[in-house]
Design a protein around this nucleic acid. Structure first.
Lengths: 338, 338
DNA sequence: CTCTTCCTCCAAAACGTTTCGGATTGCTCT
DNA sequence: AGAGCAATCCGAAACGTTTTGGAGGAAGAG
């Protein structure tokens, strides 16, 4: 493995000069610089980022902390797309990304902060961490710059990216209202998830706008799980047969709801319309295809990485990025939709 | 950020002793060790892996090189599941994983080898790299230990994990034969993909076993793409109306074939049976649900990581891991299958 | 001719670890 | 009493970079 020292020897200059030549400093003669570059190439030199990171005290590496990188989470390709987006930006600006996940069966005793500090990541992106995760607090309180996805915390070193969940939910409900629905139920996620709270807010506001009443008991929590949403939908539909439409806080839950509807011998969308949230791959392959509020998850990852690196380099105006959502009309709400 | 030196000062010992105490060497008194550990904890010490990696000349980090970590590749969740598997094992043995991807729009001029050497990864896993990728050759020829997924190259420093693709294909075709099919077409991937070659071989062997003829022109390449497979299937079905079953080298292509069948006014599986390969998420959500040969992609990633780390630590007997596949019978071949 | 200034270059320190080769102490054997 | 030994500890070098603070010389200004 050739080092800067080898190059220095071969070129007959000091290692200082090699370093400065390779890093584009101006105080080295263009001719010697060229010679050094040639020799470096010829010797197949790669700088040692460990050594560099050690002295510069930064690694040009960011950590992506996700929870639930499991086999199951592949259904909901959220994590994956965010990851792809992060990876994209990070590649563009010549950073690297290291992945930390808490799914180890053998629970690691190390906290996120320790992971970050050991690996000397310059900053971190947190995805899929629950608001009540004890580590969240810890990371946020540490001095490690980080950006959160879908958790609204902001400080000197903390930023976040999210979508406009209130507006997203409104779009969904307005769509249902426009189709003539008056009895709309909602399957939400968790009580304490930020997005759930926001989507519920949007749900209420849209009902209010449309002069429709809001019934507390027409809202159920499905924990973002397909089966649980199915159960809840069955319960709601039997208890309240008036319901003609469901707004679900995730597509996976919407799929569960569609199963429930079919199971009760009713049809989607003729008897009961269903709209989801996320626009996961399955949404456009389900039968009937699922209407949904699309979030650009790739863009969320991309923007998160961009924001983080801007923060690291001290040129981030704001620490918040809010992305748009888009209504996708498909067969689960609009009959014969192509 | 507290260092080993701070601990030494606080404990009134040398940094050598601190290092040896923390790393569990025997030549340090149990009492001083405890004191050092206490102080370290109290000072909230995290070792600097950069410094450690520099002197030890290894980083406890492996690189995962994937190609095509794009928005689109989310459909086929192959990459993601492999990644999850790798991540799982890596977490268990306290390594880290850094992700390298070649999808940067701005093409990086850096090669994989350079990436690996700069980041001082101890080894690498390559996934989704095509056999004709120029970088493949380069990585394999370099002295960086690596394991390939679905590419059979073996050497002192190179290993691979794959599934038994010949047997997998046979299972699929046998299944069709058992259902009474005699005119079976195949939609393969690329000419030059290892798995395609193997699956074609299995296809032929299974036909031979069943005393069925093999027709070269009943095999088409769909490039692992849904649309292309759809086109090819339409062509085959119109040119050769005898065909009653398709074996596809990927689920995504099988979905395309199902679309083709429907488009021609025929039904799956009544008129034409379809079986895929991979068992992607979509397979069990499509209508009809898709029969397929399941590969445990998570396990592939897990085993790849395990193999690599065994190789790194010099305790790998063999450099090859071949995993099992499993036939999943669903509605696209078996009528009214539950 | 001397004083600046600019252009090139360099020696050495620093980053935080690990590890090699001893050094010191106190104890046990002959 | 001296040798031998085990148990503890430590100084210093090494890993491959970047950076600080200058040195040396040539050219231009006065």
């Amino acid at each position: 493995m050739t080092t800067i020292k080898d190059i220095a020897k071969a070129a007959g200059v000091s290692i200082t000069t090699v370093s400065r030549a390779l890093n584009g400093y101006s105080d080295v003669n263009e001719k010697t610089r060229q010679k050094i570059i040639d020799i470096a190439k010829q010797l197949n030199y790669s700088p040692n980022t460990l050594a560099r990171g050690l002295v510069m005290n930064k690694s040009k590496t960011i950590g992506l902390l996700v929870s639930g990188l499991t086999r199951e989470s592949a259904k909901d390709n959220f994590t994956f797309e965010v990851l792809a987006g992060v990876n994209q930006y990070v590649g563009e600006v010549d950073y690297d990304m290291v992945l930390f996940s808490t799914t180890s069966t053998k629970q690691r005793e190390k906290t996120y902060t320790q992971l970050c500090r050991e690996r000397r990541v310059d900053g971190a992106i947190l995805q899929g961490i629950r608001v009540d995760d004890p580590y969240l607090q810890e990371v946020v309180e540490s001095d490690i710059p980080c950006v959160l996805i879908d958790i609204p915390i902001e400080s000197e070193t903390v930023g976040y990216v999210t979508t406009d969940n209130v507006l997203g939910a409104k779009k969904a409900v307005r769509h249902l209202v426009e189709l003539g629905h008056k009895c709309i139920a909602m399957i939400n996620g968790y009580e304490y998830a930020f997005v759930s709270e926001q989507r519920l807010k949007g749900f209420k506001e849209a009902l209010f706008e449309a002069d429709l009443p809001f019934y507390e008991h027409w809202v159920a929590n499905g924990a973002f799980k397909e089966e649980q949403a199915e159960q809840e939908a069955i319960r709601l539909l039997t208890e309240y047969p008036d319901i003609t439409a469901f707004f679900c806080a995730s597509d996976l839950m919407a799929l569960g709801v569609m199963k429930a509807v079919k199971q009760l011998g009713k049809r989607v969308p003729d008897d009961v319309a269903v709209i989801g949230y996320d626009d996961i791959i399955l949404a456009s392959y389900a039968t009937p295809t699922l209407s949904t509020i699309a979030q650009n998850k790739f863009a969320m990852g991309y923007e998160a990485a961009k924001l983080l690196i801007q923060m690291l380099e001290g040129k981030a105006q704001s620490h918040v990025r809010i992305l748009e959502t888009e209504l996708k009309m498909r067969e689960s709400t609009v009959k014969n939709h192509k």
